[in-house]
Structures are given as structure tokens and as C-alpha cells.
Simulated scan of single mutants.
Amino acid sequence: MTPRTTGLLLMMLTAINWGTTWPLLKFLLTGLPPLTLRAWGSGAAALILFGVALALRVPLAVPRAQRGRLVLYALLNVTSWMAFGTLALRWLSASEGAILAYTMPIWAAVFAWPLLGEKPGLARVAGLLLGFGSVAALFAGRGAAIGIEKLPGMALILSSAVLFALGAVLSKRRPLLLPPVAALTWQMAIGALPMLALAPFLEHADVAGVTAQVWFWFGWMVVFTMAVSYFTWFGALERLPASTAALGTLLAPVLSVVGAAVLLGEPLGALEIGALGGVLVAVALAVRQPERRA
């Protein structure tokens, strides 16, 4: 299997995992407040990864020259994406949050051209426009009211998308010279710290009132939508152009809408199916184009 094929498979796994995140988060917020949910989740994922690193005897030492870069990437890839994105669900539905979050490929393509020299060809531009257009049509067609009451959520989720895209491109430009397990373990741990510090001052977690069902899906989120999906995301990013890897994640919001329909009773019809088809064509256009340098 070629690195490109492996990268595409990892991209698809990431999109599927992240596609389940938003309806799952909306459900988990019925039992845990947003910062607490994400802080505990990131911390638990870091502990699991730490155990994996020890079992595999992966060195966890971070050279001094890598430490500043590691902290920056943790804040962009973990803290901003998780904290801002989850807080936004206080104002947005699961499907609205997912759809706006995955404007991320737009920002990744914008950053990748000047920072990585990934000059987009016609196929990738067409894929980007088609994919984003499909997602935008899905958002508009669901009758989402863009009222002033939703502006805080929209600002948070768009900030999350922009910062995560910047983190992805910077990670591609100057990758961490660490074993993948070590890099992910430290990013999860460092990324959790700001959320752990702020959560007690901004919200109250009633742990005694959390149901067994919430704890089960919390565990699922920690293992699959956090630890596993970050492995597959960074693996895809290593093997594919940043803009292609990011564009592939446009599958996630459509899958989120399907998940929201199944889990939360949100509508699912011809519009959602059409958007999924448009995104699949967009991804096909993007991955057919070889990487080009400016």
C-alpha cells in the first residue's frame, strides 16, 4: 500500500470518527458542562496514550528545541478545537456546530499556499468550492436562523476552525521530531491544562448526577473520537498535502447530520443525501490532483 493510499484511508477514518463527535457531544452535554467534558476527556486520552507509550517503550522525552513548538501545537490542535468547539454548542445545534466547524478546509487551503507552497490546481479549487458549497447548502436548507442569539456560538466555532487549520498547516511545515505516540500524548496532556484550569471557575460539574449511559459514551469519545482519531488525522497529514487531508474531513459534517438524525431526532432527507453526494465528489476531485508546489 502506497503512502498516499494509506493517507487517504486514514483521512476517511478520521472523517468517520469526527463525524460522530458532534451529536455525541450534544448528548454528553446533558450530563457534563463543556469545558469539564473536554478537559477530562483530553486528560483521560493523555493517560491512555501514556500507558500505550510505556507498554511500547516509546521514549517520551522532549528535546528543549521542540518544547515551544509542542506547546503551540497543543494549544492550536487540542485546546482551541475542543474548548471553543464544545462551548459553541451552548448556542448551536449539533448539526450547525459540525457544519460551521468544517469550514476548516477553507482556512487550511488559505494557510497552506503561503506557508507550504501548496498551490491549488483547478481540480482542488473545484473540489473545495463544491464541498464547501454542499455544506453551506445543507446549513441554509435546514432553516438555521442566523440570529444575534447564535453569534457567540458562531464566533467560537469559526475561531476553532481557523486555529485548528493553522495548527495543521504549521504541523506540516515544521513537524514535531518525536515518535507519533509521544507527540500525541504530550499534545493531549498540554492541551487539557488550560481547560482544567478554567473549568472550575466557569462551570459546575454535578458528577453524582451523571448517568451510566453518559459515562459509557464519554469513554467511547475518549478512546475513539479523541485518541484514535488524532492518530489517524496526524497520520493522514503526514502522507497527504495539508489541503487535501483537510478537504477530506468535509465528510464529517454530513456524517454528523446523519448521526444527529439517528441519535437526536434531527431531520434527514433529500437535502442531506444530496450534500453527502456533493462532498464525496469534492473529495474525489481533491485526491485525484497530485501535490503541486508554488
Rank of each mutant, 00 (worst) to 15 (best):
F164K: 00
L166S: 00
L166R: 03
G167Y: 09
G167P: 07
G167N: 05
G167F: 04
A168V: 02
A168T: 12
A168R: 00
V169P: 10
V169D: 09
V169L: 06
V169E: 09
V169Q: 12
L170C: 05
L170Q: 10
L170H: 09
L170K: 12
L170P: 08
L170W: 14
L170I: 12
L170A: 04
S171P: 02
S171M: 09
S171H: 10
K172G: 01
R173C: 06
R173W: 13
R173A: 15
R173H: 14
R174W: 12
R174I: 04
R174E: 14
P175L: 03
P175S: 02
P175Y: 02
P175I: 00
L176I: 09
L176R: 13
L176C: 10
L176N: 11
L176E: 11
L177H: 11
L177G: 02
L177V: 13
L178T: 11
L178K: 07
L178W: 04
P179S: 12
P179K: 11
P180W: 06
P180Y: 06
P180D: 14
P180Q: 14
P180H: 10
V181S: 13
A182H: 08
A182Y: 06
A183D: 07
A183I: 02
A183N: 09
A183G: 13
A183K: 03
L184S: 09
L184C: 01
L184A: 03
L184T: 15
L184W: 00
T185N: 10
T185Y: 02
T185L: 12
T185M: 15
T185R: 10
T185I: 06
W186N: 04
W186I: 09
W186M: 07
Q187S: 05
Q187M: 15
M188C: 07
A189I: 09
A189E: 08
A189T: 13
A189M: 09
I190T: 06
I190F: 04
G191K: 09
A192I: 11
A192R: 05
A192N: 12
A192S: 15
A192D: 12
L193N: 00
L193C: 03
P194E: 06
M195W: 02
M195E: 09
M195Y: 03
M195T: 03
M195I: 02
M195L: 13
M195P: 01
M195H: 07
A197F: 15
A197D: 03
A197C: 13
A197Y: 07
A197N: 07
L198F: 11
L198W: 11
L198E: 01
L198K: 06
L198Q: 05
L198Y: 01
L198N: 04
A199E: 13
A199C: 08
P200W: 03
P200Y: 02
F201P: 00
F201C: 00
F201H: 13
L202E: 07
